[in-house]
Write a protein that binds this DNA or RNA. Sequence first.
RNA 1: GCCCCGGUAGCUCAGCUGGAUAGAGUGAUCCCCUCCUAAGGGAUAGGUCGCAGGUUCAAAUCCUGCCCGGGGCACCA
Length: 585
Amino acid sequence: MKTTLQHYLRQAVQQLCDTGKLPAQAKEAPIQVERARDPKFGDYASNIAMILAKSCQQNPKLIAEELVSALDTISNVHTVSVAAPGFINFGVEDAFFHSKMAEIIAQKEAYGQIDYGRGEKVHIEIVSANPTGPLHVGHGRLAAYSASLANVLAAAGFKVHREYYVNDAGRQMRILATSVWLRYLEIMGEGVPFPGRGYKGSYIIDIARTLQEDYGDQFFQSAAMVFADVPPDDEAHEEAHIDALIERAEMLLDKSNFKLVFDRAMNSILDDIREDLSEFGVICEEWFLESKLLETGDIDEGIERLKKGDYLYEKDNAMWFRSTTFGDEKDRVVVRENGQPTYFASDIGYHLNKLERGFDHLVDVYGADHHGYIARLNGLLQALGDDPKKLNVLLVQFAILYRGKTKVSMSTRGGEFVTLRELREEVGNDAARFFYIMRKREQHLDFDLELAKSESNDNPVYYIQYAHARVCSIFRQLAQKNMAWDQAQGEASLALLIHPHEKALSRQLARFPECIEMAAVANEPAVVATYLHELANGFHSYYNAHVFLVEEEEVRNARLYLVEATRQVLRNGLTLLGLSVPEVM
RNA sequence: GCCCCGGUAGCUCAGCUGGAUAGAGUGAUCCCCUCCUAAGGGAUAGGUCGCAGGUUCAAAUCCUGCCCGGGGCACCA
């Protein structure tokens, strides 16, 4: 409808230009059509006259009136009026919205699927937290956000590939394996002082225990052997201390046994993450291992390509990427002085790999602490000879956890965090998911556990779900009264929906596809959440103001038609956000 | 010091590709179940849109400066 109105307005402007009432450059002006805020202004409004007023040096109201008289009649538009200071308002026929309702009923779950994305392939990273411990509530926001965004993009017509990037190759993972081994020795009765840089969470002990149960004393070494010649674990040496312990572990266990411990640690954590996400309604089509990049040779190939483009240079025995060429504040190390590649080297390989898989868009979802990455990743795409616009790095602000007024620490290594699983169990999947989603990603999220728990019944998600359950209840009542909904008669009787609540609700329903597009353009699933809340509000108001199961058949069937369309849109929206759609509450 | 995000009703936030009287939820006060689930609806109260300039016919929305809060500035991942 918007584009139709734009089209007609453009024609009108054209005509005024041709007849000399407006200067020729008026044709260039962008034609904006907005949904009217207040029903008394009609359904749509345009400010075009006010925009033209300046360049044409004419009274905006006069221009508006000229435009209106130049407009052809537009089908489904019953009123075109001019309001001060120069708005052109359009009133749309109810019949137009009735036809939209029929579309909803006919299309069912497909209503809201639009072609904005034109089938382009999108790769979206889901969480990608290091498998060094269970997901905590900070990851929860990334998970909920990226999963819902993926759904929104899919609905908007993109072909979406959801992928979890598993960092299984770095030093942190070796620290993890070493931590498990030390706990194992502890269980075997060795008094081992636990390193300050080790992973202290209790899940490490759990993994160590299963290791002991399955392998007995196969990995046993005396504490004296382990700590021989290891630097002290004080502030000045703690990094050296943990590195030395890793080395001792690899040496004393030999490679294959170390790998056994390593794999056991990683896989049990990864299994936990998989299960956690799946229970949270977060699906990944692929789990991509960082170590795979070594096998495919993507890292080497990426580095080669950067070398060819002269984007790499050597300094202080390390290899640097010229990211300053692309606006980064400093160049970045790719290969360390000691010959070890940095994490950024993996990034090079991974992004190259994704590009070679033929994706049109790469969506990286990171926590706000990664904001320094944007410049170097954009630079990377350019240096690889690709379009940096393909890459969209989306930063999600932190969820700061509070218990009452005290901030809860979330250090994975320190082990004192609230896990996503704990949160889900405390407030429920739907409440947790909606709480994460309802804020836009750039908004800091204060997550007060006490509040989330105590107010779980007041959570807006229930408000929306309740609207759906109420519709279901209406149809149950209908059946109990031995009545049936005559869909065809309802559709034929929609003109009987004359109340303001009904007109407003039918207009809200028609907005859903537009809402999906807005959410996709802005990469904000929160837009859908806000919409659903408004829709539920529109329904609840209607519900309280009118009885649906009335005696007059035509009216009843028409109202049920509207209500059924509402149910469908609520269902589609909730599903999109990964929320359950209860029929009874 | 530099960079990113935020600062709107007591609280949590929408609105921010500039537009017509700034909106929800929650908390406060009051009203509505002989009628489809009151996890609901309705009404009232509550706002110098952080501060100061600027651009504009029009600024919560754009620009500049400042103040406050969060985060980031590794040869860590």
